[in-house]
């Protein structure tokens, strides 16, 4: 579900079930041409939408992180992910146009890109190759 579709009065009933946050990250720095920005956002949208549709009842999409030069954008995503954990979120997924070049962060469980899904293994982003959806695999470690 999207953050703007959650009524304040409903949240106390849903909170226990919505334990996963989806952070869209467009990895822009501002020097892109308008059509490049559009293409980048479309890439992120295309990986986000199937996730949102399939897991609408457990994944909360929050506002996107857009800009950052060099690793700054990814640092921003990592900070947002950590702050989500502080408020009790159990799993954090990032929808991105590509895997970040910056360091892996413990706060992000999964990155979903147009070329596949990536999980952290020994401090590296490793492509997910099993038939089960990586998010379901993550959840299977703790069904609510």
């Amino acid at each position: 579900m999207k953050f703007d579709a959650v009524p304040k009065e409903q949240w106390s009933q849903w909170e226990a079930y919505v334990d996963t946050v989806l952070i869209p990250w467009s990895a822009l720095c501002g020097s892109e041409m308008p059509w490049e920005m559009h293409a980048r956002l479309a890439l992120v949208r295309d990986v986000m939408e199937p996730l949102e549709r399939a897991f609408a009842g457990r994944v909360l999409t929050i506002p996107a992180v857009h800009y950052g030069v060099g690793d700054a954008g990814w640092q921003e995503v990592s900070t947002v992910a950590r702050m989500c954990r502080v408020r009790g979120v159990a799993f954090v997924v990032v929808a991105a146009p590509h895997v970040p070049t910056g360091m892996c962060t413990e706060a992000v469980d999964l990155i979903v890109c147009p070329d596949g899904a990536y999980i952290v293994k020994e401090g590296q982003w490793v492509v997910w190759e099993q038939p089960m959806h990586p998010l379901v695999a993550l959840w299977n470690t703790s069904i609510v």
């Binding site: 579900m1 849903w14 079930y17 919505v18 549709r53 399939a54 897991f55 609408a56 009842g57 457990r58």
Partner: peptide, 8 residues
């Protein structure tokens, strides 16, 4: 659409 909270 699941009748709990809308997953597939």
């Amino acid at each position: 659409v699941c009748k709990h909270l809308g997953c597939t």
